[in-house]
Amino acid sequence: MATASIVRCTKCAKNAGTITCEGCSAKFCRRCFDNHRQDLSKELDNIVYEHDMLKQELEKPNENGTHPLLKQIDNWRKESIDKINQLADRCRTDVVKLIDDNKNQLVDRFRKITNTIRDSRSDENYDDRHLKMWITQLKELKDELIKPSNVHVEVDKQQPSWIQKIIVREGSHQQEEVNDSKL
């Protein structure tokens, strides 16, 4: 006599597996099948919740500055400005020192002119040529005070740009990684 083999429930292994789930192909008893369906229903509820959250995000208008890519650009901008400010502060300090040194030299030259003018005045030893010379010397000192001839601010064209330029590209991250690995 042939005995019929009974397929047991995949979940509880106690009862006969009389119902087959089309999705996972597992055989369940009636009670376990109902529990399996409840589990599937809960998973579907979670999927619907995730769906609704994504739908809200997609329907939300773009707000300036909230997207991670926009934040990345803002961070680059801030870091670049910080670098510029640091360099500008160092250059200002250097210029102030050079201007002070230049001013000290101008003060020495001014004292010499002052002493010459006083001596010439007290001795009444001057003429038109002296007056023109002194006015020219004073004008030169004044010009040198306003715009020192030995101090210049210029762009160092020999140095590569120390602020890295950013670019925006369209494409997938995987594509960029492949392109980067070829470099």
Rank of each mutant, 00 (worst) to 15 (best):
A2T: 08
A4H: 01
I6V: 15
V7G: 01
R8C: 03
C9A: 05
K11P: 04
K11L: 10
K11V: 00
C12D: 14
A13M: 11
K14L: 10
K14V: 10
K14D: 11
K14C: 11
K14T: 11
N15I: 04
A16W: 01
A16D: 06
T18F: 07
T20W: 01
C21D: 11
C21L: 05
E22Q: 05
E22W: 05
E22P: 07
E22A: 06
C24H: 11
K27Q: 07
F28P: 06
F28E: 00
R30A: 08
C32T: 04
C32W: 03
F33R: 02
D34W: 01
N35W: 01
H36M: 02
H36C: 13
H36Q: 04
R37N: 10
D39S: 06
L40F: 00
L44Q: 11
L44A: 08
I47Y: 12
Y49V: 09
D52E: 12
M53V: 13
M53R: 15
L54R: 01
E57G: 04
E59W: 00
K60I: 04
P68L: 08
L70F: 02
K71H: 04
Q72F: 09
Q72R: 14
I73W: 00
D74F: 00
D74E: 07
N75I: 05
K78R: 13
K83T: 15
K83R: 09
N85D: 02
Q86K: 12
Q86I: 13
R92M: 03
D94W: 15
D94T: 07
V96N: 09
K97N: 11
K97G: 04
K97A: 09
L98I: 00
D101C: 11
Q105E: 13
L106V: 11
L106K: 03
L106C: 08
R111M: 08
R111S: 12
K112V: 14
K112C: 06
K112A: 10
I113L: 14
I113W: 05
I113R: 02
I113K: 07
T114C: 09
N115K: 10
T116G: 00
I117Q: 00
R118T: 02
S122H: 06
S122N: 11
S122K: 09
E124D: 13
N125K: 12
N125S: 15
Y126S: 06
D127K: 08
D128A: 12
R129E: 11
H130N: 13
K132P: 09
M133D: 09
W134Y: 13
L138S: 03
L138G: 07
L138A: 08
L138N: 05
K139R: 15
K139M: 07
E140L: 09
P148E: 04
S149A: 12
V151C: 05
E154P: 02
V155S: 07
V155T: 14
D156L: 10
D156E: 13
Q159E: 05
Q159Y: 02
S161F: 13
W162F: 14
W162E: 11
W162V: 13
I166A: 06
I166Y: 15
I167G: 09
V168R: 04
V168D: 08
R169I: 10
R169C: 06
E170N: 08
Q174R: 15
Q175I: 00
D180P: 01
S181W: 04
L183V: 00
